[in-house]
């Protein structure tokens, strides 16, 4: 319960400035720039160079451009409903930030990992709903592909992030809370028995996150050559800006969850100075983004049934194995 005016103000401040809207926007721009630059360099291209220092402001320019373009609503489509759903998805993603240790006043309660899990699924479902809200067959096809994939990778991702939470709760008493598990998770690496479990679930989490972000090899729902842009085909202007923003912010939030739950968060500097903690979290975050970009640059797209079979045959059982072992260990 929010007690008192000062805590309410604190909550609103966190929501609006740090780590909420303003800070997320900055990080989203940085992440998009970094990803584009790294991806381009891996393919021997230059990437963004024109706007700002080394093109750092290019994503910002893109956002501004999209934001002031005409919002075309196709016939028999919906104007306001998709925008509202997108706004809800952004809200859901930013709400997770409050549960992570990066916010100065984290909200947590026992078993809140389930709430976080629901909030994490929300944006994917919104993106899928977008496709169904247009009369375009590309939208509907892309959405049905997305939903079919969703079931596989959301399950895999949730199992993967549940493993450290279960371990931290059973061994370190984190009460199945995302915040407490994030704080204690680095201790799990000190126990040699748990390291294989952590490695397995880290791998499955990274792969399912790649799928969650609809990046290669899992960009099946928006495969340009087949179904234009899938669920997002009929969207333009501010809605497209929102969609791209959701993509960036999803990468930000999920990578942060991986940093805190698997990579130990502030690990070597648990007692250390604040600047060192911030630096180490930033470095770990960049490493996660870099690894995901590297996977993207390295592989080609799966066929849809290949992707689903791979997820159900290898990723889900592997992560489930880690989870089951972590509940009985």
């Amino acid at each position: 319960m929010v007690n008192g005016i000062s805590e309410t103000l604190m909550l609103i401040g966190e929501t609006l400035i740090y780590p909420g809207a303003v800070f997320s926007f900055v990080v989203a721009i940085f992440t998009q720039w970094f990803r584009r630059k790294a991806y381009a360099r891996m393919q021997n291209r230059m990437g963004p160079t024109y706007t700002g220092l080394a093109g750092t402001l290019q994503p910002f320019a893109d956002y501004v451009k999209l934001f002031f373009k005409e919002d075309i609503v196709v016939i028999r489509g919906y104007a306001k409903l998709p925008a509202f759903l997108l706004a809800l998805a952004i809200g859901a993603l930013m709400a997770i930030l409050l549960m992570l240790p990066i916010s100065p006043y984290s909200v947590y309660a026992p078993y809140d990992i389930i709430v976080a899990a629901y909030l994490l699924i929300w944006p994917t479902l919104t993106l899928a709903a977008l496709g169904f809200l247009t009369p375009s067959p590309y939208g509907a096809l892309g959405s049905s592909r997305l939903l079919t994939l969703t079931i596989a990778y959301e399950v895999a991702f949730l199992i993967s992030i549940l493993t450290p939470v279960v371990l931290a709760s059973r061994i370190l008493g984190a009460q199945y809370s995302l915040y407490l598990s994030s704080i204690y998770s680095w201790l799990l690496w000190t126990n040699p028995v748990l390291v294989p479990l952590m490695v397995i679930s880290l791998l499955t989490a990274l792969i399912s996150l790649q799928c969650k972000l609809l990046e290669k090899p899992f960009d099946i729902p928006e495969a340009e050559q087949e179904i234009v842009a899938g669920p997002f085909t009929e969207y333009s202007g501010p809605k497209l800006a929102f969609i791209i923003f959701i993509h960036d912010i999803e990468q930000y939030v999920n990578s942060l969850i991986i940093v805190f739950l698997f990579l130990g968060g502030v690990a070597p500097f648990v007692e250390g100075p604040l600047w060192a903690q911030i630096l180490i979290v930033a470095i770990k975050y960049i490493i996660v983004v870099l690894v995901l970009t590297w996977i993207k640059a390295m592989v080609a797209r799966f066929r849809v049934d290949q992707a689903i079979k791979m997820l159900w045959k290898y990723i889900v059982p592997l992560s489930l194995f880690a989870l089951i072992v972590s509940t009985v260990i």
Binding site: V2, T15, G20, L88, G91, A95, M99, L119
Partner: peptide, 16 residues
Amino acid sequence: VVLETAVSMFIITLLA
């Protein structure tokens, strides 16, 4: 935690 996240989600949704 549900209430606080809901408040935060609501604010951001309104903003967006």
